[in-house]
């Protein structure tokens, strides 16, 4: 897609692009290529010298059981959040799409958690489920469960999933609602005339028509859990207990910062980049198809 009418100045367009290009090159391409380069280097313990070691860092990485554990953790975390956040949001969006008097007010009340920082969301949820002072920890303990997300990895994971879902529902809700409102009324009316009831209509007409939105949101949610939940994890569990809630991104941070293993951390960054690029590519391929609809 291109404009028919254009200016033909020679120098001006480059001058307009310079600020963005400089920032992009200095803070994006340079570090990204550094990450790639470092992933092939091994630094000595003092960071004074480094040597080229080829794929050694990657090989070491894939020999670590912790790395596989981080992968599994990430997979569980992201699929649980995606499923929960998407289904809750879809339920809320279908209800908000009905012609209710207070629909607008509900919408406002449901979207604002988007504005809460992930780390703050984490803090709110620990406060709620803190083993000794959490308001909701008491009823759980009353049922006989020894609730302690500080020590029990499953409890920690559950808390992470809940707080990450809580924060993501508003985003999904907005997109589902927009998607629902974009479905032509006449299609629904035609289905009603064809004699299908509301529930059948939802699964046979509305849900398939919503599938572009759903697919888009699945990808966005996975990317969200990969990267944006860093703040939640750091606030709620710090990757613990015993590294059991360390995701891939958190591991990049922890290994580089705490362990000082820059080569290994860089290799992990590169793998993450590949995953994100793959996800984005899938999404674009899909967006392209959506255009042809």
């Amino acid at each position: 897609m291109e404009k028919r009418a254009l200016f033909s100045n020679k120098l001006l367009p480059y001058m307009l692009l310079v600020p963005q290009l400089i920032i992009t090159l200095v803070f994006f391409y340079w570090p990204a290529s550094q990450a790639l380069w470092q992933s092939f280097l091994l630094e000595d313990a003092f960071g004074l010298s480094s040597e080229f070691v080829g794929f050694e860092n990657y090989r070491t990485l894939f020999q670590q059981p912790e790395y596989y554990r981080a992968m599994v953790t990430t997979a569980i975390f992201s699929s649980a959040v995606a499923v929960l956040a998407l289904s809750c949001a879809l339920l809320l969006a279908t209800q908000a799409d009905k012609k209710l008097k207070a629909a607008q007010a509900f919408k406002t009340f449901l979207i604002w958690p988007y504005a809460v920082a992930p780390a703050i969301a984490g803090v709110l949820w620990i406060f709620m489920f803190h083993p000794t002072l959490g308001t909701l920890a008491r009823p759980i303990k009353a049922t006989g469960v020894d609730w302690n997300p500080m020590l029990n990895a499953n409890h920690a994971m559950l808390l992470l999933i809940l707080s990450a879902t809580w924060k993501q529902i508003s985003y999904n809700f907005l997109f589902f609602l927009a998607g629902l409102q974009a479905i032509p009324k006449s299609v629904i009316e035609a289905a009603a005339i064809d004699g299908s009831g509301p529930i059948r209509r939802f699964w046979t007409i509305v849900f398939p028509l919503l599938s572009p939105t759903t697919f888009f949101l699945i990808v966005v949610n996975i990317v969200y859990v990969f990267f944006d939940t860093f703040g939640i994890i750091d606030a709620v569990t710090g990757g613990g207990p015993a590294g059991r809630t360390t995701t891939l991104v958190y591991k990049v941070y922890a290994d580089g910062r705490l362990g000082g293993d820059l080569g290994g951390s860089a290799a992990q960054s590169v793998i993450l980049m590949v995953i994100v690029i793959a996800l984005t590519a899938v999404q674009f391929k899909f967006v392209e198809r959506r255009v042809q609809y």
Partner: peptide, 24 residues
């Protein structure tokens, strides 16, 4: 120029955090 800018869409700061730190 467009593609140089466009590609940055794909990679959040989290994945290039230490090299960026070093440059800064």
């Amino acid at each position: 120029a467009f593609w140089i800018i466009f590609i940055t869409l794909m990679l959040p700061v989290e994945v290039r955090i230490y090299p960026t730190y070093k440059i800064v």
